[in-house]
Design a protein around this nucleic acid. Structure first.
Lengths: 202, 202
DNA sequence: GGCTGACGATACCGATCAGTATCGCGTGAG
DNA sequence: CTCACGCGATACTGATCGGTATCGTCAGCC
């Protein structure tokens, strides 16, 4: 009856229950090498356990992939929710905060890329649960951006939300392939310009 | 990379030499399923030949991947060169042409994504020849855009080139994951707005 | 104290992978 | 005519894949 709820991201790795260690190992390896490139044996080894233990907690490798992506998506959502709570009536600050969150993440994922963009490349089947999860997450993110642009009083909130989405995704892709330097600063400048293009209603 | 090119190639599959049939099959399967998901046997079968014939023309699977990406990159470069030849002294028209080229390609790759973005996700090793090829291609594309923005008289050509790059990449990602509707129209409107934001020097 | 169930270790399964060896056929060049 | 060679077909190698079976051990709980 061990609680499966989120344990704060502290380095008590050695004492973490197997399921959490497996998810940590999966996060590490899937992000670094890709889904198909990583075998369940490698994940189990890095988690300091065995394949059998892994399969006691996850029915299949696909289920583990799905759970990993679910956690990543939840982390993003939580960060954005926190932003919303910190700036409840400042949609512009929330949008800039989201951009800052992505921009600050760029060095960390540098040359490796966004887990969603990378994973969807390995999930061509649109009916795959993990792919559905990614698409739902991206749709929700756009919906959030759309609401913020509307509340920010932008004249074309749909267009602005689409543009910001493009720029956020594109910055991650360009940071990964190394073509654009200082992608984070560029990203922030562009999003700020989109907002500055029209007077602040709030 | 134009779809008409691929179609015409495919309709004459029966008469093409084995090497070309293999490259066509690789294009089809790698784009649709991903690199790791496709075995050399599947490529040979779809090309109407055998693994042995494949290995007579390509030393390894990696070499075939590399050659495929080289062709895709060359197709993009050829299309942009053609644009440059058609509008030699109209950098704005060239930029819009590039955006149009990407926008028109979105429905074709819909929900499958750009081959470069997808492939780089499966090539985490930055020293891999195929990855080097992608990075060089993307760097060249940004260089081209940079030159065009400069010649178009934009006050901040580096910033504009980065923004257009972000938007082009982001549109492809968003079309793939299905979050943004009418990504092509959005893309064209944004690029046009970037250019319209400053007076046309040419 | 005795039971239950999670855990680690190991060995195994069938399938598939990239890559190789071999052989027979056909065709085109000398 | 003949010889060489590209080609298709088949069979094979050794490694690795996802997933399963089995067993000994140990910790918690009634």
């Amino acid at each position: 009856m061990a609680s499966t709820d989120r344990v704060s991201r502290q380095s008590r790795v050695a004492t973490l229950p197997p399921r959490e260690r497996i998810l940590d190992a999966a996060e590490e390896l899937f992000s670094r090498e890709g889904i198909k490139a990583v075998g369940v044996q490698a994940i189990a080894s890095r988690a300091g356990t065995t394949k059998m233990a892994l399969y006691r907690h996850f029915a299949t490798k696909d289920a583990l992939v799905e759970e990993w992506l679910r956690i990543v998506a939840a982390d993003y959502t939580a960060a954005f929710d926190q932003l919303a709570a910190a700036h409840p009536d400042e949609p512009r600050a929330q949008i800039l905060g989201m951009a800052r969150f992505i921009a600050d993440g760029l060095p960390g994922i540098s040359h490796r890329g966004c887990p969603f963009i990378n994973s969807i490349a390995e999930l061509p089947d649109r009916t795959h649960p993990a792919r559905r999860l990614i698409e739902a997450h991206k749709a929700g993110q756009l919906r959030r951006l759309n609401g913020l642009c509307t509340r920010a009083g932008l004249p074309d909130p749909d267009g602005a939300a689409a543009e910001i989405t493009f720029v956020l995704e594109g910055a991650q892709v360009s940071a990964q392939n190394g073509s654009v330097e200082h992608a984070g600063e560029r990203l922030m400048a562009i999003v700020a310009a989109v907002l500055d293009r029209h007077p602040a209603a709030l």
